[in-house]
Amino acid sequence: MPYPDKLLADDEEVVAHLHPHWLTVFWPVVRFLLIVGGASFGTALIPAGPQQGLLRMLVLAIAVVLLFFTVLIPWLRWRTTHYVVTTHRLLFRQGILARSGRDIALSRITDVSFRQSLWERMIRSGTLAIESAGDSGATVLRQIPDSDRVQQLLNHMVEEDADRRAQESAGYIRGWEDAAGFGYRDSGYQV
């Protein structure tokens, strides 16, 4: 079962599954090109001789270490950071080996705001601040692609969740009244 489907309840559906903005992997790609180009150029500059093979292996080893720390790890961080909006909650997961995450029920979200600099407006990225009922404070999600649209989506999903809960509650009360054989509507009270 693919992520995040294994985390969902039976009646829950994924509305949006996002990673941080693609520009977060721009500099790792540039570093990849520079390291591969530099390593190729460096191995070509090594003069022929008995130490040529050893020196080329040393250049390649340095390139591999640099690629690991400056390209692979940032790419894995980007790939393993998930922002998932479902019909019931917002899930946030991050981490390569050690993982951390937070789930916020849509019913607990009290405010969603976004912030964009001029540069972020140009690349359609931004920061979301999500206030929720409770003592943990605001959850800040950075480098969200199309952050203003995601903010509108979250606000819409919060409203839909409230409507769904109200309908479920009304259905439960009607079912209880029917099972008990009386209703508040008959006694003049409105539900």
Rank of each mutant, 00 (worst) to 15 (best):
Y3P: 04
D5L: 15
K6E: 05
L7S: 01
A9K: 15
E13T: 14
E13R: 14
L18A: 01
H19I: 07
H21A: 06
P28F: 04
R31M: 02
F32V: 05
L33D: 03
I35V: 13
V36S: 06
V36L: 12
G37A: 05
G38A: 13
F41H: 01
F41R: 08
L45K: 13
G49T: 09
P50Q: 10
P50M: 10
G53M: 12
G53I: 09
M57H: 08
V59I: 12
V59G: 01
I62D: 00
I62K: 08
V64G: 08
V65G: 10
L66G: 00
L66D: 01
L67P: 07
F69R: 09
T70P: 12
P74G: 11
P74W: 00
W75G: 09
Y83M: 13
V85F: 13
V85H: 09
H88R: 15
R89Y: 01
L97S: 12
A98M: 14
A98V: 07
G101R: 10
V112R: 04
V112S: 07
F114P: 04
R115Q: 09
Q116G: 01
L118G: 13
R121H: 00
I123D: 00
G126S: 06
T127E: 02
I130Q: 05
S132F: 01
A133G: 13
S136I: 11
G137L: 09
T139C: 11
V140R: 02
L141M: 09
Q143N: 15
I144H: 00
P145C: 08
P145Y: 05
R149Q: 03
Q152I: 01
N155D: 11
H156Y: 02
A162L: 07
A162G: 12
Q167D: 07
I173P: 07
D178C: 15
F182E: 09
F182D: 03
R185W: 04
D186V: 15
D186R: 15
Q190L: 13
Q190I: 13
